[in-house]
Design a protein around this nucleic acid. Structure first.
Lengths: 215, 215
DNA sequence: TGGTTGATAGGCCGCCCGGCTCATTCCGCT
DNA sequence: AGCGGAATGAGCCGGGCGGCCTATCAACCA
C-alpha cells in the first residue's frame, strides 16, 4: 500500500507541485492544509501516516501544530519543511515530536526518502542541517528528556508580532493596553530566549523560527 | 509548439514541483536556475520564451536579474513570483521589464494562464496584487515614463544586509571600514526610500521586496 | 502551603539611534 | 565644463532603547 500523506504549507504553488511530484513518486496525498490550524484539524480527521509541514504558516506555526498533532495522535509522523537551516528550530521541532526536518532546497527524492524513513520510525535531517547541528550539539546534550517547553509565551509572541509589523515600544504598549515598561520587560525576555540583543535581531530570528510572519 | 520556459527559484523543492506541474500542463521547461546570476546566464544561453522568476534569490535579486535579462534580450518575457503581496515591489518589477507578477499562493492553472498571457504580450497580476495596487495607483500616476531607477544603491544594500544579519551601527561601520556617521547616513537614505522609520521596519520591508535575505 | 512562572510595573543609567543641516570627493553623463 | 548622484564625513540633540534590580499579583503545581 502507498503511504498516506497530508501536505501543510501556506503556498498553493508549492502544495500543488509537491502533490503532483509525490503522487508520481508513489505516495497517496490525502489532503492539503493552508495553515497550522487546518493542518491539526485535517490530521485528526484523515489520520495520515505522515504530515509534511512547513515551519512558517499563518494562524498557527508549524512547530506548535506539530506539537498538537503529536499530542493528540502520536502515531502520525510529522516531517518539517523550512526555508532556513537553523539548528535551534530543529531542536524545537524535534521536542515538539517531529521525526524529520528538511530545508526546501532539497530534492523530491530526498523528501521521498525522509517520508519513508519517518514511516519506519527513523529521523531524517537535511545534510545542511546535520552540519549545523554538530555545532549546536552541546546545547542538546544538557537535557534530552526536556519537558516540552514553549519557548516564547503567548504574550511575548504578540509583542514580537507587533514589533515586526513596525511598531515602536510606545505603539506596542498602546495597542496592548499595557505600559511601555511591560513591553520592554517582554522584549528583554525575548532577547534572552532568542539570543538576540535588539528588536531587529529578534524579529529576524523569530521569522526564521516560524514564530511570527512578515505579512 | 509548446512554450519554452526557464525556472528561477532558490528552492529546489519548488523548482521540481513546478517543473513537473508545468510539463504536465504542456509547457517545455528548458532549464532551472538557483539564483539571479544563473538566471541571467541561462536566459542568455537558452533564450526561453518566458522566465518564471522568484523575487528573493541569493547573489542577485529577482528584480535586478529581470532588468538585466530585459535589457539584453527584450524578447524574453519575465513573470515574477513572490511570497508577499507588496505593491511597491510590483512597481519595481514592472519598471524592470517584468510582464507578470504572481504571489506563490496562486494555483498552477493561474501560473499557466499568466505564462500564456505573457507570450501574447499581456501583463498579468495576481488578484491579491491587483487589489493592493489600486490603493497605490496614485504613486504610479506621477511618472509613467520613470527612468529605470535602482531604488537602493549597492552600498546601501550592503549596509542593509549587515543590519539584517544582526549588526549594530558600530559593527557595520567596522565591517565596511567606514565611520559610524556614514552608516547612519546610508540608513537615513534607506529609511526614506523604503518608507521606514527604524532599522527593523527597513529590514522587514527589504526582505519582502527581495532586496536582502534572511540566511 | 510554599515554589515557580507569567504578566504587570517602577526607577535608573548610558548609549545608541534617528532627524537635522552641512561639506567634500569622485565618477559618469551631458 | 558643468551637473547630479553616490559615498564619505562632521556636529548637535532629544528620545527611544537595552541592561539591571526590584516588586506585586494571579495561576498553577507539587
Amino acid at each position: 500500500m502507498s503511504i498516506r500523506l497530508l501536505l501543510a504549507d501556506d503556498h498553493r504553488m508549492l502544495r500543488e507541485g509537491l502533490r503532483r511530484s509525490l503522487t508520481d513518486a508513489g505516495f497517496d496525498v490525502v489532503g492539503e492544509a493552508a495553515d497550522g490550524e487546518e493542518a491539526v484539524e485535517l490530521a485528526g480527521q484523515l489520520l495520515p501516516e505522515v504530515v509534511l509541514m512547513d515551519v512558517s504558516m499563518p494562524h498557527l506555526g508549524g512547530v506548535e501544530a506539530t506539537r498538537r498533532i503529536h499530542d493528540a495522535h502520536p502515531e502520525v509522523r510529522v516531517v518539517m519543511l523550512t526555508m532556513h537551516a537553523d539548528a535551534d528550530v530543529v531542536a524545537d521541532a524535534i521536542r515538539a515530536g517531529a521525526c524529520g526536518y528538511l530545508v526546501k532546497d532539497c530534492s523530491i527524492d530526498e523528501i521521498a526518502d525522509a517520508i519513508r524513513a519517518a514511516v519506519s520510525g527513523e529521523t531524517t535531517l537535511s545534510p545542511q542541517l546535520a552540519a549545523s547541528m554538530l555545532g549546536e550539539l552541546r546545547k542538546l546534550d544538557r537535557g534530552p528528556a526536556d519537558p516540552e517547553e514553549r519557548l516564547i509565551t503567548k504574550r511575548e509572541e504578540e509583542v514580537l508580532q507587533l514589533i515586526a509589523d513596525g511598531c515602536s515600544t510606545p505603539e506596542v504598549a498602546a495597542k496592548l493596553y499595557i505600559s511601555q515598561k511591560t513591553v520592554k520587560n517582554h522584549l528583554a525576555a525575548i532577547y534572552q530566549k532568542l539570543d538576540a540583543r535588539d528588536r531587529t535581531q529578534a524579529v529576524v530570528r523569530a521569522v526564521r523560527m516560524g514564530i511570527i510572519r512578515l505579512d
